[in-house]
């Protein structure tokens, strides 16, 4: 047995011992909820064991998680889409006794997608992809123009001169937006005036990426805090804060 295997065995024994103590003291009940708490803590610690190094327990939990998520999502698609949007409308119900026959068209197109699994008929799936891709592209264009281009350009340019006069913050924003767009125009050589403007754009981008980094650290730490709270408060029954 090597060092890592001994460490793993030690951790498993400690985990079992802690749970034994928690059950013996009545902190965890021997029911579905109590068992679930133990399983949840075990899953959490198994995943955290990856920080020490990749190991069989982490891999086991990781693969089980993938299977569980796939089945859960399949179940949601079945009940909330296939059953609700296809089977019930076609079969008719108490509110709408007449079947809605037009549902057959998207159902057939959708089942064409599944022909990707059948070698000779895979060309049928292209018909369905054509609908999804084409419709998605068509729906996107006017909405992007309206919601992103017009609605974003208007306040950028329009708020520089207000009823109270010149707004330096708004001018600063305009410089930022233009310089970033110039930076991303790679078909223009970044020399001379274009080079200077592009460098200003880089500074704005650096501030933005720094802010992103700060917020990303905040996000990841929040998740860690949540899991540590679960382990300490819900599993170990340590009242937080303790001191």
């Amino acid at each position: 047995m090597n060092k890592d295997q001994r460490l793993l065995l030690l951790v498993l024994i400690a985990f079992t011992g802690i749970n034994g103590i928690l059950i013996a003291t009545g902190s965890i009940q021997l029911d579905a909820k109590g068992f679930g708490l133990i399983v949840g803590a075990g899953v959490t610690l198994a995943i955290y064991s990856f920080l020490y190094g990749d190991n069989p327990v982490f891999k086991l939990v990781e693969h089980a998680y993938v299977g569980v998520v796939a089945a859960y999502e399949f179940a949601q698609v079945w009940y909330q889409n296939i059953l609700s949007d296809i089977i019930h409308p076609l079969a008719g119900n108490s509110d709408n006794p007449e079947p809605i026959w037009s549902i057959i068209v998207p159902t057939v197109l959708g089942s064409f997608l599944l022909t990707r699994l059948v070698g000779k008929a895979v060309w049928l799936s292209r018909l369905a992809f054509g609908l999804i891709v084409g419709l998605g592209a068509g729906l996107l264009i006017p909405r992007r123009i309206s919601a992103y281009l017009i609605q974003q350009i208007e306040p950028t340019v329009g708020s520089i001169f207000t009823s109270t006069g010149f707004d330096p913050n708004a001018a600063f924003v305009l410089i930022g937006v233009v310089s970033v767009l110039v930076y991303f125009s790679f078909s223009l050589e970044h020399k001379g005036v274009v080079g200077v403007v592009s460098r200003v754009g880089i500074w704005f981008l650096m501030v933005s990426f720094g802010a992103s980094f700060g917020y990303t650290v905040m996000a990841r730490l929040s998740l860690l805090i949540g899991q540590l709270t679960f382990l300490m408060q819900d599993w170990l029954h340590v009242p937080l804060p303790l001191f």
Binding site: L221, M232, P241
Partner: peptide, 17 residues
């Protein structure tokens, strides 16, 4: 792993205190 341990202990202590 030293960095991980410092983060872990720091956050855990802040939860306790």
């Amino acid at each position: 792993r030293v960095i991980y341990a410092v983060i872990f202990v720091g956050v855990a202590l802040a939860l306790l205190i």
